[in-house]
Design a protein around this nucleic acid. Structure first.
Length: 215
DNA sequence: CACCAGGCAAGTA
DNA sequence: TACTTGCATGGT
């Protein structure tokens, strides 16, 4: 087994011991997770919660309602999540695909083979690799690892990868190092985000007390 | 005040 | 191909 994979297992173990179970993104429904995945792009989750609450409160957090809702109005509901005009369009793009190609059934959409599902998600304007993989893992329950900016920064700062390692290579590294397990992938990604938030900011990283020190 | 957050697409050269 | 910029609210 490569040394890199062993170090990743140590990383996972340390984060588990330090932070405990994250139970990330249970959400009240798969649909809510899908919406959240787009709303959280480059945005603090706290702001996304407000946007989702607005939709819930108005009884709009379902596919038919959101498809029917004029885009400008949708934008107003999701305003707290930032980039609201962009994200209203992106939501519509995805919901339209599910509505038109899969009879409006998330279950049908998620029944596609993994490769096909990922391809269709990526074909939507506004859905890139991270959003596609988040939806696959946390909403569809597919065993795919989600890479984000923190994943890259943390591994890079601890000299586990080159600075220029791309999304796909990093995803492969994790998926070659850990068995395909939805719960474990979900926890690991959540733990990395948690670690990043607290210890691995872009600037002025305060690495004191980081559980990964000396890795 | 500056900087960043669970990205992505479009524009430029 | 390889950078750069726009999108935007809310918290530290």
């Amino acid at each position: 087994m490569p040394a890199q994979a062993e170090r990743l297992e140590i990383l996972y173990r340390r984060l588990c011991e330090h932070f405990g179970q994250q139970d990330w993104w249970p959400g009240e429904s798969a649909f809510e997770v899908v919406v959240g995945a787009i709303l959280t792009q480059n945005t603090n989750w706290k702001n996304v919660e407000k946007a989702i609450f607005n939709l819930k409160e108005a009884g709009l957090l379902n596919l038919p309602s959101l498809l029917e809702l004029p885009q400008a109005l949708l934008a107003e509901y999701i305003r707290p999540a930032g980039y609201y005009n962009i994200k209203a369009g992106r939501l519509r793009n995805l919901l339209t695909l599910i509505g038109e190609e899969h009879g409006g059934s998330l279950e049908a959409f998620f029944s596609l083979p993994m490769a096909e599902l990922r391809e269709q998600l990526l074909s939507v304007k506004g859905i890139g690799p991270e959003t596609a993989d988040s939806i696959m893992l946390y909403a569809a329950g597919k065993p795919i690892f989600v890479v984000d900016a923190y994943t890259h920064r943390i591994l890079s700062r601890h000299n586990l990868i080159d600075e220029d390692t791309d999304y796909h290579s990093l995803q492969e590294l994790f998926m070659d190092s850990f068995p395909p397990d939805v719960d474990q992938y979900g926890e690991l990604h959540a733990l990395l985000v948690r670690t990043g938030n607290q210890f691995c900011k872009k600037t002025n990283p305060r690495c004191e007390n980081c559980p990964l020190n000396g890795l």
